[in-house]
């Protein structure tokens, strides 16, 4: 179970490309060729995972960018991290 102290990073098997400043991104899983699309919120989250980062730190950083209550953002990012982990796009550190 992912929680605020869980440290995660982008998988070495995944790469993503944004579509411009403040734009969504496409994510490619290199070993399988699976392709994903995501919105700006997910992209900003991935930007923070180039190096290992705790989920709580990611919440702190994104609170500076988005107008959203902390509890809401943390809940959404825990759910998102679970999806990314299940898809093999991020890894636990």
């Amino acid at each position: 179970m992912i929680h605020s102290d869980t440290v995660i990073s982008l998988s070495q098997d995944a790469t993503y490309q944004d579509m411009g400043d403040n734009e969504p991104a496409v994510i490619l899983q290199l070993s399988t060729g699976r392709l994903f699309t995501c919105n700006l919120t997910t992209r900003c989250f991935l930007d923070l995972l180039a190096d290992p980062c705790s989920l709580g730190d990611a919440v702190d950083q994104l609170l500076k960018t988005f107008d959203v209550p902390r509890e809401k953002l943390e809940r959404d990012l825990i759910k998102l991290a679970g999806q990314l982990l299940a898809a093999g796009l991020i890894q636990l550190n």
């Binding site: 403040n22 496409v26 994510i27 699976r34 392709l35 994903f36 699309t37 995501c38 919105n39 700006l40 919120t41 997910t42 989250f45 500076k64 960018t65 988005f66 107008d67 959203v68 809401k72 953002l73 959404d76 990012l77 998102l80 999806q83 990314l84 898809a87």
Partner: peptide, 15 residues
């Protein structure tokens, strides 16, 4: 500083 409007994060697998 001005913050951006928030949208719930999405992740969709494409064909």
């Amino acid at each position: 500083s001005h913050k951006q409007d928030y949208q719930e994060p999405t992740l969709e697998e494409q064909e």
